[in-house]
């Protein structure tokens, strides 16, 4: 994918912001706006990799991968680049892994207007520093994502949501590698995948009844806590049953209230300042956007 036009548009001076489909907050207002290239470049099912423009919609990518029976662990809304820039994982994280593990290689445009390649095209690679991990969740403050190579996974032959009113922590302990275990204070929603007979046997052994997926549309805010302190955290904010969904074993609590700020150490703040300064000394990329302390202000249109 040729990124020279994208790089030229971003250029090397003046404030600039990047827009996707505005499902995760949108571009910085009143700043010159660019958009990343879109389109699926290639899919290599036997490598379990896909290459696409960062501006590609998740709907388009999912549809293309569906044709070869594969998927990426990126929540299905907005653009690929937007999802990676925010860095929030979907509710399948417990079983399928976090979004940060999906990115293998990226070419982004730097504050100096250069196209920079990080990572590598193969599923295994330790060549140089792992800057892909740094870019996931960087909210367009370190570089504007142009083209990505992502790791794909094969779709399981069968998956099903189940419900239970049993002890959710018992389920978490005893189920073999569930994809998701969500708890709303009363009911537990479990997503299982695999061979049909295995999934059904697991469900019946644990007294699970099949059900529709839980509804997260109202719960637009998320709180990240150590999974061992989910209950303490819920008690702390006096969360009422039914007004939250907690990802057990992970530690994300979906709420309709703004989550409290997380504490960040002075050293970590310092590192953020120095990384931003070194990569974008004039602060021209997404000016005013901070990756610290904005967790609570961000929301997701569709968190699944």
């Amino acid at each position: 994918m040729d990124l020279s036009d994208f790089a030229e548009e971003i250029s090397d001076s003046g404030p600039v912001t990047i827009a996707g489909m505005s499902t995760r907050g949108g571009p910085v207002p009143e700043v010159r706006t660019v958009m990343a290239p879109s389109g699926v470049e290639w899919i290599k099912p036997e490598e379990m990799t896909v290459c696409c423009g960062a501006g590609t919609s998740m709907a388009e990518l999912d549809a293309a991968l569906d044709l070869v029976g594969q998927y990426v662990v990126i929540p299905p809304s907005g653009t690929v680049g937007g999802a990676l820039a925010l860095g929030h994982s979907g509710i399948r994280r417990l079983g399928n892994g976090p979004i940060r593990d999906a990115l293998l290689q990226m070419r982004y445009v730097s504050a100096t207007g250069d196209v920079v390649k990080i990572g590598g095209p193969t599923v295994k690679n330790v060549t140089g520093f792992d800057l892909c991990r740094l870019m996931v969740g960087s909210r367009g403050t370190l570089g504007f994502f142009g083209e990505v190579i992502l790791r794909t996974q094969p779709r399981a032959p069968y998956e099903q949501w189940y419900c239970s009113t049993g002890d959710p922590w018992d389920l978490l302990r005893s189920l073999y590698r569930p994809v998701s275990v969500l708890w709303d204070g009363v009911r537990c929603y479990v997503l299982l995948e695999g061979e049909t007979r295995d999934v059904q046997a697991e469900a019946s052994a644990h007294g699970l009844g099949s059900c529709d997926p839980p509804d997260l549309t109202r719960l637009v805010h998320r709180w990240s806590v150590p999974p061992a302190s989910i209950q303490t955290s819920l008690a702390l904010i006096d969360a009422q049953p039914g007004c939250f969904l907690a990802e057990l074993g992970v530690g994300i609590i979906h709420l309709d209230d703004v989550a409290p700020e997380q504490s960040v150490s002075m050293q970590v703040r310092d590192l953020h300042r120095r990384i931003k300064h070194n990569l974008d000394p004039d602060g021209r990329l997404n000016p005013g956007v901070s990756v610290i302390g904005t967790q609570s202000a961000m929301s997701e249109a569709r968190p699944i």
Partner: peptide, 25 residues
């Protein structure tokens, strides 16, 4: 010589994934 935690038990600590860039460095 200063000491800090990168990443942590919570799945989405505020800020950049400094844990991710430290691993493999």
């Amino acid at each position: 010589g200063s000491v800090t935690i990168l990443g942590g038990e919570d799945p989405e600590p505020d800020g950049l994934d400094l844990r991710g860039v430290f691993v493999g460095s």
